[in-house]
């Protein structure tokens, strides 16, 4: 479980996050939604500590992040996996080397064991026979899978995904979403996903946090999201023609 308590963040005197508080539960896919520039990435990177926490706190299973020493942070990080928006694979390393990287760096297991674990993770994300290719030689969807395999290599307790669907076609997006959801349940991770994709919200939104202009404006489940009286949220949801039509159809009934 991850609790976010009154988190604020500014850059160059400009407030980007304003007093965000919420809770993300274990074994669930928690979504942070909002339009581009609303502060999703800044929120996620503040939660994991890639941005220094300026005000407020993040509590990991009862342990306050701001009061941790650098050694505790380092240990906590070994329980974190993160999927970045552009996949962030090392482009001069092969697929297998990418997945093996955290194992090479942080474990004392033999080459054989590390290779087995990397292959297991690649298998788990349905990638085979790509071990010796470089990231530039595989498709965007495959890159995301490699990044997921790398993120789960050390069996993390927490998984963070920044726009896992960006740059993917709708069908591949669903496959990636489902994969993240399956892994979350399988390993009982606390998963937080940034997205602006309503299809993901409807597909895997166990818990949804809506932020707008750096402020949390609503949180709830996908069942409730259509009944909310919030102009910004409605704007966000019904930005797509499809959802407008669904709404019109429902109202006629």
């Amino acid at each position: 479980m991850i609790e976010v308590i009154n988190l604020s963040k500014s850059f160059d005197g400009k407030k980007i996050l304003k007093d965000v508080s919420t809770v993300f539960n274990k074994g669930q896919t928690n979504l942070i939604i909002g339009k581009s520039g609303s502060g999703k990435t800044v929120l996620l990177k503040s939660i994991v500590g890639l941005h220094t926490i300026e005000k407020g706190d993040v509590v990991y299973n009862g342990n306050s992040f701001v009061s941790m020493g650098s050694n505790e942070v380092r240990l906590l990080r070994q329980d974190m996996g993160m999927l970045f928006q552009g996949s962030a694979l090392f482009d001069s390393s092969t697929v297998e080397e990418n997945v093996r990287f955290p194992l090479d760096m942080l474990t004392n297991s033999s080459m054989e064991e590390r290779r087995d674990r990397a292959n297991f993770c690649l298998d788990r994300v349905n990638l085979t026979n790509v071990n010796h290719l470089y990231p530039s030689e595989i498709s965007g969807g495959m890159q995301k899978r490699v990044a997921i395999a790398r993120a789960i290599a050390l069996n993390p307790k927490y998984l963070f995904c920044d726009e896992p669907n960006s740059g993917l076609d709708p069908k591949t997006s669903i496959v990636i979403d489902e994969l993240i959801r399956e892994l979350t349940q399988e390993y009982n991770m606390t998963t937080i996903i940034n997205t602006h994709d309503m299809n993901s919200v409807m597909g895997i939104g166990d818990k949804i946090v809506f932020i707008n202009g750096g402020v949390k404006q609503w949180e709830g489940s996908k069942e409730d999201i259509f009944n909310v009286e919030n102009e910004a949220l409605e704007d966000f949801i019904f930005a797509s023609e499809l959802f407008r039509e669904v709404r019109a159809f429902n109202r006629k009934k």
Binding site: K45, V48, L50, V73, R77, M82, F101
Partner: peptide, 8 residues
């Protein structure tokens, strides 16, 4: 960031 997040 990907390296930092691993605690490296």
């Amino acid at each position: 960031d990907a390296i930092d997040i691993m605690g490296i």
